[in-house]
């Protein structure tokens, strides 16, 4: 059986979502190709309306655009940006990003739920970026989200899985794909997220700021594939407290 990522009825074989916001434009194509990415995010605020060096000109054909709502400070603004993205021909996918903190860019979970509900009703494939909280994740499911995108660490921090335990809870409890977003700094961290059972990983800064961008994109691709394969094959048991006793304690049981 093919191992596919399903988002809003669309299927993808790649589990690596690439950001586009921090690159030199000429490098986007090579990054997408080496990453094997089928989905690339796009900040609508960067997509110039016919201006010079339009980012859309650099995105290879056949890649699904995932416009995000960065710049939105509340649900209403996010909804307006999403509708604008659709009008601009960016498709039905939308990644909700709502921040009202300019320092850490942490998402506002409450407003995100509200925007998800409105946009899902309008037929968008809604992919909400959120702070990993189980109750919020459940609300997002009920609101019609296509997946849940918890942050690993603050955007751009490259700190890795700082919220590991809470992301694991979402993976264990939520039926939608859990896509780890933000803060992943190294391929090994992306691999670990995939081993945990994340459905996909999204990365931007880690690749955009690498010395050799296409090579780092490829390294992430391999790490994500390795992590996925490890997850599917069932990780070996890890001994947490000493070895298993060789003489069973329950051998006396009869009947």
């Amino acid at each position: 059986m093919k191992d596919e990522l399903i988002l809003g009825g669309h299927s993808f074989s790649s589990r690596f979502i690439l950001g586009s916001g921090k690159y030199s434009l000429e490098l986007i194509k090579a990054a997408v190709e080496n990453a094997g990415a089928q989905i690339i995010t796009l900040a609508l605020r960067r997509a110039n309306e016919g201006g010079v060096a339009n980012i859309l000109d650099y995105i290879p054909e056949g890649v699904t655009l995932l416009p995000n709502t960065s710049g939105a400070r509340n649900a209403d603004e996010a909804v307006r940006i999403a509708r604008l993205a659709r009008e601009c021909g960016c498709g039905d996918f939308v990644k909700i990003e709502i921040m009202r903190d300019s320092k850490y860019l942490l998402p506002d979970n409450q407003e995100t739920i509200r925007a998800t509900e409105i946009l899902a009703k309008e037929g968008f494939v809604v992919m909400p970026y959120m702070y990993p909280d189980l109750n919020v994740a459940r609300d997002l499911v009920n609101a019609g989200a296509a997946c849940v995108m918890p942050l690993a660490a603050p955007i751009g921090s490259n700190k890795g899985l700082a919220t590991r335990e809470f992301i694991q809870i979402l993976i264990d409890e939520i039926d939608l794909p859990i896509i780890v977003d933000a803060g992943i700094g190294r391929p090994s961290q992306a691999c670990e997220a995939m081993e945990m059972g994340a459905a996909a990983v999204m990365a931007n800064t880690a690749i955009a700021t690498a010395g050799d961008i296409p090579a780092m994109a490829e390294a992430f691709k391999k790490a994500i594939e390795a992590g996925r394969t490890a997850y599917l094959s069932g990780l070996g048991r890890v001994m947490e407290k000493g070895a298993a006793a060789s003489s069973p304690l329950t051998g006396f049981l009869q009947d």
């Binding site: 690159y23 030199s24 609508l44 605020r45 110039n48 201006g51 710049g71 940006i81």
Partner: peptide, 16 residues
Amino acid sequence: IKDKGLQPVMADYIYV
């Protein structure tokens, strides 16, 4: 800007 390997950006905001 390009010669430094950096990306000139004309606008980074969307009015909503």
